[in-house]
Nucleic acid binder design. Structure first.
Ligand code: ZN
Ligand code: ZN
Ligand code: ZN
Ligand code: ZN
Lengths: 139, 139
DNA sequence: AACAATTTGAATTTGTTTCTCAATTACCAC
DNA sequence: GTGGTAATTGAGAAACAAATTCAAATTGTT
């Protein structure tokens, strides 16, 4: 179980809820997933893991730096495993599709803007909202 | 009362709660203010206006395009009168200070990124988080 | 003043996330 | 393996921002 190593490395005891939640987050289909949706998948899998535990474990993973937390428009937090390189997000307002992108020029300008304003930059959030072309065009 | 004209232009009846809330939002000291804080100021002013009305009126102002709504890190919505030119925000994580900035290059790149990914861009949110230098450096 | 339509305040509800606490489980030492 | 201890869990309650409900009050218009 490579999940076990990940958990131990993060200083967390190896427990069933944490293994299951980690597995769900690691699945390619579940990038950018909400706590509620993690919980739904656990239910479908027949696991008896409480919603409070899901929130708790996600926060622990966040503290341990295992994942990134996003706040897309519309309220709830969205999580994604964070081993990848930094990137920002495009979100379709119609179908909810999320596209990741990196733009070095934007990143560089952000640093310059912060410097110009005497702020030591720690992180940033950039979300581009729009509509998929042409698939979500009408509807 | 120029507030009355603003409200009428937005298709809203001129009522005391709306005038008072509009006044608060227009005060230079109250850029980037939360609903809760608008309510607190009303209380200090001795106005008997309910919190539900504050939320309702802020939504109406938002629908009417009178203000912009932001989601800074840490939960609640933050509002600002929206007659100004588009801008993005730097936020100090220690003292909460908000600095506005515009960067045409970043704006342009965003449009290009959206085009490249076949998304018709409607809007975006960009927040830079950090620590004021040198004032909030330690503490 | 009279009227319909809108708006309001108080209380209730919703939706997301956190907290509490007793029962369970993981991990370390023996 | 067994025992001990601290960490973890599930269920429910609580917290929090925000939206909704509805009877009463207010607005803008005759
Ligand atoms: Zn970025
Ligand atoms: Zn991503
Ligand atoms: Zn911008
Ligand atoms: Zn601003």
């Amino acid at each position: 179980m490579e999940q076990n190593q990940e958990l131990k490395k993060a200083g967390l005891k190896v427990t069933l809820p944490r293994i299951k939640i980690l597995e769900i987050l690691q699945a390619p289909a579940n990038q950018h997933i909400s706590a509620e949706d993690v919980y739904k998948i656990l239910l479908e899998q027949g696991e008896e893991i409480g919603l409070a535990t899901v929130y708790r474990v996600l926060n622990q993973f966040d503290d341990a730096g295992l994942l990134d937390r996003h706040h897309f428009e519309g309220g709830k937090s969205v999580f994604e495993m964070g081993q990848k390189k930094h990137h920002d997000h495009l979100v379709c307002l119609k179908c909810g599709k999320v596209i990741e992108f990196e733009d070095d020029l934007i990143e560089k300008r952000q640093i310059e803007v912060a410097e110009k304003n005497n702020i030591k930059l720690t992180h940033h959030s950039l979300y581009l909202y729009g509509v998929c072309q042409p698939s979500c065009e009408d509807r």
